[in-house]
Design a protein around this nucleic acid. Structure first.
Length: 378
DNA sequence: ATGTCC
């Protein structure tokens, strides 16, 4: 007693239905012990990362931790309404027109200038999706639960929607590498020159990631002779300042979507439904129980290195090019096709239900992936 | 996650 430090609050938002590996919870607890951390919250998609778990949010006072954000600073999801009609699916024809690995033919410097970013900032990667769990996807509206809110957002059954999941590519990677090279996993003292310098680069990577998702949408949709209207763009790998009980804290999100920035899509795997959800207003002011954050997806069930071994005896790569929901998958990479198989992910329905039960969200609409683009071999 | 690591 007599200490100003209060006990760190560690919480995992998950029901008994939701399997969460012990290692991920251990990582959450370990991370919560970092100096200054006041709250560590595991989302229902919590899974193990390297040191820091993915699907988690951390609040800290006095110290800020770039390593908790990871290398893909600004990674997030954007949703666009397209001009493609849901009843006129031309999946094979569209698929043949898509190639997003090559550098964009347009003027990247001009594009970056629109976001007040230097023209030579990682410009050759601008407009490319990247690897891992990143994707570009066309989605149909399967079911609308809240017609008024959906209507206000521009969500209608007649249109297809475009979902981009990508980040800051080599830029964020370089920023983390520079930080780790100088400070390792150590935090930076709030207000220090080093912290301020990191945040400046972090914010630039955030802007770059938004510019990147915008360009991905532009490239993808213009290849299909369409255009898009952006509905939202939200990052799930970030560190941002918050005023909490009159004091400043740093909110680190590592694979955690914001619950304080309006409606968002929480996607399942390429073979399952995605959910358009509205964060409940109450939880924004309600004692930060969820660290102002939500699950950013279904969460991995198997680590990448396990996926092929578990699936290759039963499935050929070709078996994955059409999903159980009738969606077309473009993934011309043998490792990735297994790593991103729906079987490698947890049940998105349980992840969503856990957040509904925790009174964090309500479901506005259910979306169905019809065309999932990962990588096209050149 | 990464114009990937030698």
């Amino acid at each position: 007693m007599g200490s100003l430090e209060k006990e760190t609050i560690v919480r995992v938002i998950a029901s008994d239905q939701n399997w969460i590996e012990g290692n991920a919870v251990q990582q959450l607890e370990q991370t919560s012990k970092l100096k200054g951390v006041t709250r560590a919250v595991g989302m229902p998609d919590l899974h193990a990362g390297k040191g820091c778990p993915i699907g988690a949010a951390f609040l800290s006072r006095g110290w800020m931790y770039p390593a908790l954000v990871g290398n893909d600073i600004g990674c997030g999801m954007g949703l666009w309404r397209t001009e493609l009609k849901a009843k006129k699916l031309k999946l094979e024809k569209w698929a043949a027109k898509l190639q997003l690995e090559d550098a964009w033919e347009g003027d990247a410097a001009d594009w970056l200038a629109c976001y007040d970013l230097p023209g030579n900032l990682c410009e050759t990667s601008l407009g490319t999706i990247g690897g891992g769990n990143h994707f570009a996807e066309l989605q149909a509206v399967e079911k609308i639960h809240d017609a008024d809110t959906c209507s206000a957002l521009g969500i209608e059954k007649r249109w297809l929607y475009f979902l981009a999941h990508s980040g800051s590519r080599g830029l964020g990677h370089e920023i983390l590498r520079d930080h780790v090279g100088r400070f390792g996993k150590a935090g930076l003292l709030d207000g220090s020159v080093e912290a301020t310098a990191y945040i400046a680069r972090h914010d630039q990577a955030m802007g770059w990631a938004i510019a990147n998702r915008d360009l991905i949408a532009h490239r993808f949709l213009s290849a299909l002779g369409s255009d898009g209207h952006k509905i939202f763009d939200l990052a799930h790998n970030t560190v941002t300042p918050r005023t909490i009980n009159g004091g400043r804290q740093w909110l680190h999100r590592k694979g955690a979507a914001p619950s304080d920035q309006g409606a968002l899509v929480i996607p399942g795997s390429r073979g399952t439904y995605s959910y358009l959800v509205q964060p409940k207003e109450s939880q924004v002011t309600d004692q930060l129980e969820n660290a102002l954050s939500l699950a950013h997806g279904a969460g991995r069930k198997w680590v990448r290195s396990e996926a092929k071994g578990r699936l290759s005896a039963k499935f050929r790569p070709d078996d994955f090019f059409k999903t159980d929901l009738g969606g077309l998958v473009i993934c011309e990479n043998k490792a990735l096709i297994y790593e991103e198989a729906p079987q490698a992910y947890k049940d998105i329905d349980i992840v969503i239900q856990d957040m509904v039960d925790a009174d964090l969200i309500r479901v506005l609409a259910v979306l169905r992936p019809v065309l999932n683009y990962k990588i096209r071999r050149r």
